[in-house]
Design a protein around this nucleic acid. Structure first.
Length: 431
RNA sequence: CGGGGAGUAGCGCAGCCUGGUAGCGCACCUGGUUUGGGACCAGGGGGUCGAAGGUUCGAAUCCUUUCUCCCCGACCA
């Protein structure tokens, strides 16, 4: 992508509306534009990141055996009346009347719909277990939207629903998702902390929330330091669930079961939540299967959410400095910026283009800053948008056959011989 | 929903108290000079001052109503 052809409307000053870091940075980096309270347009750069995160979530769901489908954003009130939640949900649910006077709603979640889909097609224990998910926009008319995309009213969420014959099987599905969640967040470069959670209005008796560590997070977390160094390939959910982790209100220094040396304290942001709620919805919405004995029994269900759009903000909260965003490689909108400091200079142009074309050919996401503007603006814009690796090409170094390589993670700059650039960068990308 | 604050050019703000027909910085356009960290000089474009009503010879400014947005709190991916 050539910067000059792309659309990244960066700002020097964030609008006074924005309060927290990620919100300010997303606006300054031209990732989003607020449309109304808690509702945002995703501009091209923001969309690239959103799609990256969505894709990681999708791949890890698929790896865990979940099946993707897509349910609508607008739902009829019928099923909600049946489940009893049409009244329970209250004002947080956006209600709409269509032209024939039917009561519709913009879905805040999808338990009712999925259970209905399940019950119309699945009748036998032989078809279990099933785990279905979708990644879809939701709307919750929050009392008070805030923090940019971290608590919008409209948000993109991955939610899935497991269906099992009994509680034992359901716990297996639960643990399977638990494992998938840990892997998902680690893959995004984050440090997930899983906490036993209250089940809240969704109901049920087993629930964990997943927070990621960020200096600017909302909740204070207390947890076993072992949680910081998980190997995504050898996760044992039962073992992991036994590790100590608590939020501020739950934690009591005197009753804490682990030693002071093992206890870590940090801020966190909630990005996922999983629930096992047994037969609550299956009974109301008629999701029964016949077991081996021909007896009709309600299926045991769980639901599992990841805030996809929230993660964009959360990752920025975890990875930024005063000059901008520092994307982890896996979610970066571009992996490399090629910055031509002197467009118009033949040597700079030729060299920049050479690298740009190489990376394009090799399917490495690259943005080529070919804009004609001051050097300071170029360097600071690229810092702001947070590309992990930058190749900086200027006249001065090029005379000595050198370019600069900048690692946004630590802002270290190395001078590299022009001939070694490709190999050098390829090595960095592999790690 | 309770408490607090803000709406003036794309963004950040001043002007309001004490009414006289709108200004600054950044951004944008033109020309020139620059060229390794948000450049400089000169010229230029852009605002029914959130909306409606009222007071007045005259309203961004005073009064009333209303809409929107933000912050703190209780709730949530």
């Amino acid at each position: 992508m050539k910067y000059s052809n792309f659309f990244i409307p960066t700002l020097k000053d964030a609008p006074s509306d924005a309060e927290i870091i990620s919100h300010k940075m997303m606006i300054r980096a031209g990732m989003i534009k607020q449309s109304s309270a808690g509702i945002y347009s995703w501009l091209p750069l923001g969309l690239l990141v959103l799609k990256k995160i969505e894709q990681i979530v999708r791949e890890e769901q698929n790896n865990a055996g979940a099946i993707e489908l897509l349910m609508p954003t607008i739902q009829s009130s019928d099923l909600w009346v049946k489940s009893g939640r049409y009244d329970d949900y209250g004002k947080e649910m956006l209600r709409i009347t269509d032209r024939s006077g039917r009561e519709m709603l913009y879905g805040p979640t999808n338990e009712e719909l999925i259970t209905d889909i399940f019950q119309s097609h699945i009748n036998s224990y032989k078809d279990l277990p099933k785990n279905l998910y979708h990644i879809q926009w939701k709307f919750r008319d929050e009392l008070r939207p805030r923090f940019g995309v971290m608590r919008g009213r409209e948000f993109l969420m991955k939610d899935n629903y497991s269906f099992d014959l009994n509680e034992t099987e359901a716990k297996k599905s639960y643990d399977n998702m638990f494992r998938a969640y840990i892997r998902t967040f680690i893959r995004m470069g984050l440090t997930p902390i899983s906490l036993r959670a209250e089940t809240g209005p969704i109901g049920g008796n087993l629930s964990h929330e997943f927070q990621i560590i960020a200096k600017t997070g909302e909740s204070q977390l207390y947890y076993d330091k072992k949680l910081e160094t998980l190997n995504p390939n050898t996760i044992d959910p039962n073992e992991l669930q036994s590790f100590y982790a608590a939020v501020d209100e739950q934690h009591d220094d005197n009753k804490c079961p682990i030693s002071r040396d093992d206890l870590k304290i940090s801020k966190g942001i909630e990005v996922g939540h999983i629930f096992y709620f047994g037969t609550k919805y299956s009974e109301k919405l008629n999701a029964f299967v016949q077991d081996q004995n021909g007896k009709n029994i309600p299926v045991h269900m769980g639901s599992y959410g990841i805030g996809v759009s929230r993660l964009v903000g959360a990752i920025i909260e975890a990875y930024h400095d005063e000059n901008g965003i520092k994307w982890p490689l896996e979610v970066a909108p571009f992996k490399i910026s090629i910055i031509n400091l002197m467009p118009g200079d033949q040597d700079c142009d030729t060299k920049s283009l050479e690298y740009y074309e190489y990376f394009m050919k090799n399917n490495v996401e690259v943005i080529f800053d070919d804009r004609i503007c001051s050097i300071g603006k170029k360097l600071s814009d690229n810092e702001l948008i947070g590309t992990p690796f930058q190749i900086i090409i200027g006249k001065r170094d090029l005379k000595n056959n050198l370019v600069e390589f900048k690692n946004r993670q630590n802002n270290e700059i190395q001078k590299i011989s022009c001939n070694d650039v490709i190999n050098f960068v390829n090595n960095k990308l592999k790690k």
